[in-house]
Design a protein around this nucleic acid. Structure first.
Lengths: 207, 207
DNA sequence: CGATCGTAGCGAACATGTTCGTTACTGGCT
DNA sequence: AGCCAGTAACGAACATGTTCGCTACGATCG
């Protein structure tokens, strides 16, 4: 019984039954103990989720920076694979969104992204500040897109914005009405790549 | 007793004692009833928070798009005021981060931002997709920065990343070590403006 | 060798979000 | 008038996260 053990059980339960079933009591039962015992290894649920993410990120293969290849394409590929990794567990993405993960594998990810940006001659400060934006964007996209096809009970919740946008009267919200067709266009693959590319463009732009 | 009434009480309690105190039971007690009664007007806590945000956004003054003025500066100012509005209630920002707000005032905000982007000749699709990024960024910055000086109990939680970054051994994470000084530099005012400017640059970039 | 202290471990408890089943009431339909 | 359907309202209940206080034990120090 250790922190690693708790996280491992948590991951297993999540893979089998979803994050919703990963409760302290459930984990405790799985480990033949009471809920309070888990707090020795994990400060709270948020930290547990962070640890779970870190373990997931570990499975991500991060190819070493290839000097010859196009760094932009490499970076976008990496970010896309992050997002897709979280697509399978949208509720974990939502949970991690309000976190600032700091596990070793997550740090490795940050380091790799930084390396790619620096390889692209992005100025140091812009690179440093940009990593956060890129990762936040990746997690955020997983949280949004993934929850779309998740549990049927939440279908009307986040889609409320989409509905509101579609029904927005052109008198009150002229601009929304004007872009109505564009705002919901594109599949997530396209939007994902576009979002990352946009931020990277912004980071490269010499203002 | 109505939805507006519930939201009003919730806002008052939040202003006086913080969002943590805004519990269903507390609101119910404030309205001399039981917790279950609130669910007639509000689907769940998330929706309540969304409604609270919408009310806050209503207080934001959104100047009509001034054709003559610099649209970029106007847009950045607007986004900054959004972020600062949420600075006072970081936990609300965190809660809203996983939401897709869709209240009337929030739609108005979206419409205004869209107007500014279109006024800047940003292509329609880029504008439509960009609004989300900008608002997500605004809320996210409030959630992160604001929680820094919030309740003292959470001090070590989100700062864990900062600590990890500072202590990152340069052997394992060379790039992090390389940008260490830059990654924590700048006050939130600077970073805020920089983030928005970066995204806008990306939206303008003709790729 | 003995005392002390920090920590694992745990049972019970508390506050919270949410749901269920039930009651009262009000509007409209026959 | 009589009936019905939808809704406000609510009390009780359940599952959850988290904390408190207690026990046991092992290491560390006098």
């Amino acid at each position: 019984m250790s922190r690693e053990g708790v996280v491992a059980v948590a991951l297993r339960v999540m893979r089998e039954e979803g994050l919703e079933r990963v409760t302290m009591r459930r984990l405790a039962a799985e480990l033949d103990t009471g809920p309070a015992s888990l707090y020795v290894y994990v400060r709270n649920t948020a930290e547990l989720h962070g640890a779970m993410l870190d373990e997931l990120v570990a499975e991500l293969d991060q190819p070493a920076v290839q000097q010859g290849e196009d760094w932009r394409e490499q970076l976008i590929r990496l970010l896309c694979s992050c997002t897709e990794l979280l697509f399978a567990y949208p509720s974990l993405a939502r949970s991690v969104l309000v976190l600032r993960p700091s596990g070793p594998h997550y740090l490795r990810l940050i380091d790799t992204i930084l390396g790619l940006l620096l390889a692209g001659d992005v100025p140091i400060r812009q690179a440093a500040w940009g990593v956060d934006m890129l990762l936040q964007q990746a997690i955020s996209m997983a949280a949004e897109q993934g929850s779309r096809d998740e549990a049927a009970d939440a279908e009307g919740e986040e889609r409320a914005l989409a509905v509101a946008v579609i029904e927005a009267p052109s008198g009150t919200y002229p601009n929304i009405a004007h872009v109505r067709d564009e705002i919901l266009s594109g599949d997530h693959e396209q939007r994902m790549r576009w979002c990352f590319a946009t931020i990277i463009d912004g980071l490269c732009a010499t203002r």
